[in-house]
Design a binder for these strands. Structure first.
Lengths: 138, 138
DNA sequence: TTAAGTGCAAATTATTTGCAGTAAG
DNA sequence: CTTACTGCAAATAATTTGCACTTAA
């Protein structure tokens, strides 16, 4: 079964300077096809691919996610050891992390106000401020 | 100024309810022996052990760091994928992370003021808020 | 045509585990 | 003594890589 490809995903790739190969379009569709933001791991995306009936190898899923990141299409978040999450929302925003399920989701950026940030050493520039709010079900 | 009767490191272990074995005392000494806070990885601690002339296996370094964490003596921080840091400063405080060297260090907690934190879902409790300020040399 | 992209299997990295031997209480 | 701890080597998990094959431009 082939997933219908809308021109949107191709655009998303081409505008970032990437060649819209079959596999990339398939992954792009699963990532941003419905316009919703999501937090994916390589493994979870690979599972989605197989469910969709398309075929992209696990190695290519890994490599493609990396490529999408360096093209600025995704943002990598490593909140928990050993596993990387890829966020389709590339703006700098805080996250909720559910410790039991290891699920990551967005926290409303407008609700976080950092009044004062520790001053970085003079010789450094701040590239990013990661805020992860760890949650446990009660 | 008083000279402690028991070595500090043994105390540190016993008060946390841990048996002060030779290996644990060796690691405790390297971690908190000089009263300074530090951020260690299993690998870097293992290297320190070997430099000190003592012998603790890598597996035991890993296992012991984990044991120290669950005893509340250390705090695990996973800022970068794939590698865990262990902080001897167990208070909740922000960190600077040097992207080039992958070095982690404390940022002054009193300089971080979060005016407003995104509200956690009603069914959840916040276990921790991780703030990592990523730095790059300029 | 041809450089870029892909798939597979093997390699790597960080970490954990099974189990037999050792040591602390 | 006896139970927890340790060391080793093998196992695991997430990810990367080498290389021959394929495909988009």
């Amino acid at each position: 079964m082939t997933t219908p490809i809308l021109p949107d995903e191709t655009d998303w790739l081409v505008q970032a300077g990437l060649r819209p190969t079959k596999q990339r379009v398939t992954l792009a569709h699963l990532l941003v096809g419905d316009g919703q933001h999501r937090h994916t791991t390589a493994e979870s995306l690979f599972t989605s691919v197989r469910k969709s009936g398309d075929a992209v190898s696990l190695a290519t899923v890994y490599n493609t996610l990396k490529v999408f990141c360096s093209a600025g299409l995704l943002r990598e978040i490593t909140v928990n050891g050993a596993k990387s999450y890829f966020d389709t929302n590339i703006s700098n925003h805080p996250h909720f992390f559910w410790e039991e399920t290891e699920e990551l989701c967005d926290a409303p950026a407008e609700d976080l106000k950092i009044a004062c940030l520790p001053m970085a050493p003079a010789v450094a520039e701040v590239t990013k401020v990661d805020v992860v709010i760890r949650l446990r079900k009660m």
